[in-house]
Amino acid sequence: MLDNFAFGQYYPGTSVFHRMDPRMKIILLILYIAGIFCAGTLPSFAVPLLFMVFSIHMAAVPLKMVFKSLKPLRFILIFTFVLNLFFLQGERVLLDLGFARITREGLVNAVLYALRLVFLVMGSSLLTLTTAPVPLTDGLERLLSPLKAIRFPAHEMAMMMTIALRFIPTLLEETDKIMKAQSARGADFESGNLIQRAKAMVPLLVPLFVSSFRRAGELAMAMEARCYHGGEGRTRLHVLKMARRDYIALALGIVMVALTVALSRLTAGLI
């Protein structure tokens, strides 16, 4: 059943992290990403790791939830790890399989890349776990709004994101229904070769397009009826205001990046 499809993965709560300004959380994520890419050595990863652990602790989100986001990525993780393992050929051979060699440099590199990927996903999932879709799009819109000066459609982008989030469950439900309705008429979506399968999608896709266009038209009219006329002169229900905690977090974030860079330099020759 697609009814219970929970989009995003917001984990409701009232922690400091939940209450932080979404803009600051986005900035922190960017800093954090900068941090993990500055960490060029294994020991220097300790800094972003500490930062991550501290953040999860402050967010009071179960560790299980954070790790769950890694599950869909496990194959990509293994794949990149193996690829990097054999790709970079260094001097100190650890294992010689004849057709390929694993070197110490290759191993370190593979571990580094895998760690970056893991940290990246965990960091972003912490953002979506602690920020509901509405404040998240609000935050993005406002962070990007200075770009309006160069005609970047920040408001329109945020509105599109909101509408997409709102309609994903509806469209999934509809897809399920149309698939069943066509199956009741003997349609077969499961067997046949690639071309046959692609052809079998027509009775599903055409109705979906038709209904999506109808929905779009009706929604546009409903929005106009409620006085929607673009971003100009619009106020927002949620007022975003940076508090002291946000500036403290920012300071911590900057310190984290600086420490990572320093540690990365210091330990560069060690491994």
Binding site: E174, K177, I178, K180, A181, Q182, A184, R185, V202, P203, V206, P207, V210, S211
Partner: peptide
Amino acid sequence: GLVFQYPETQLF
């Protein structure tokens, strides 16, 4: 045979 609710949405 099964006719769903609003079956016209399945026309293609």
